[in-house]
Structures are given as structure tokens and as C-alpha cells.
Amino acid sequence: MNDLTSLEKRKKTNLKILKILGIPALVLFLILIIGSISQGAKPKTKAEIEQQKKDSIQTYRVDKINSGFVQFEIQIKDKMKNPNSYDKILEDYNKKDTSDIVNMYIRFRGDNSLGGKSISQVNALYNIKTEDLVITNQSVE
């Protein structure tokens, strides 16, 4: 019976300590959280909002163009006799283009019909909105 009372005494003591330390710690924690939220939520200027929109549009555009290059590469490999010999040298697009149609090209190395290596460049037009890709020109060096 003596053990039970000492256990109860320890519980009561721990509860008192928790109440004493717990409330100020909780208040301090809440102050820190509210302070960090209010600092991060400063109002943005119109210029900052416009720049954020431009960055978002540009990121979307670049992502779409990158998916166009994947589609472009697949089409090139589909037309090759030995797609395993495909070795991309360069892929690029006209960065001055701001319309939905992007002029892009890929330079690559691959096996030719005689078993030798040749360098080719393929140009295409890619529509960002419809994701249509049309190969416009192919040249072999």
C-alpha cells in the first residue's frame, strides 16, 4: 500500500512540473510559429506578382518543350534502321520563339545503311498546346 501512495505522489509531482513548464513552453512555441508565419507572408508588390507569373509560364513552356524533345527523339529512332546506334549530339530550339509553335532540332550520330557512322540533323515544328510534332527537314552530313 505504501508503494501505491508513493506512486501517486510521483504522478502528482510530475503533473505539477508539467503544468509549470508545459504552459510557458506551449506559449513560446505558439509565438515562434505565429511569428514565422507572419514574416513569410509579407505582401507582394505588383512587379513581384507579374514576375512570378512570367516565371511560372516560362517553366511550363520549358517543361512542354522538353516533353516535345522526348517525342521528337522517339520519332527519329522509329525511322532508323538501327535505333540502338542513336547517339544524340545536340538538341535545341529557337528561344526567341514565344508563340505556341516552336522550331526545334536534334543533331545525332547513327549507323547508316553501309554500316558506317553518319551525323544527321532533323528539324521539326512542335505545337506546345496540342503537343503535335511535325518533322520539317532532315539532312545528313
Rank of each mutant, 00 (worst) to 15 (best):
Y126D: 01
T136W: 00
N66H: 11
K96V: 13
N14L: 14
K77E: 07
S36C: 04
R109F: 06
K44E: 11
L125Y: 08
D97T: 06
D63S: 09
L28V: 09
M80K: 03
N82M: 02
Q52R: 08
E48P: 05
K16V: 13
K19Y: 13
E50S: 11
L90N: 13
V62F: 08
K64T: 10
K9W: 14
S120M: 07
G35H: 03
N2L: 12
N84V: 10
K9H: 07
E73N: 10
L125Q: 08
K42R: 11
K44T: 12
L15M: 11
V102A: 03
S38M: 09
N94A: 05
G40N: 14
F69S: 06
K88A: 11
G110P: 00
S38N: 14
L4K: 11
D92K: 08
N137K: 14
N137L: 08
L90V: 05
N103D: 14
I119W: 04
E131S: 11
I128H: 01
N66K: 10
G115V: 00
F72T: 04
Q75E: 15
E91L: 12
L133C: 02
D55R: 07
E131K: 15
D78T: 08
S36M: 08
Q51Y: 05
Y60N: 13
F69C: 04
V102C: 03
I57L: 11
L4G: 02
L21Q: 09
F72Y: 06
V122D: 02
G68V: 02
N112P: 02
D63E: 14
Q121S: 06
I31K: 02
Q75A: 03
K88E: 15
I101H: 09
R107E: 15
G40D: 11
I76A: 04
Q52L: 07
I17T: 09
I34L: 13
A25T: 10
A41F: 13
M80E: 10
Q58H: 07
N127R: 01
V27L: 14
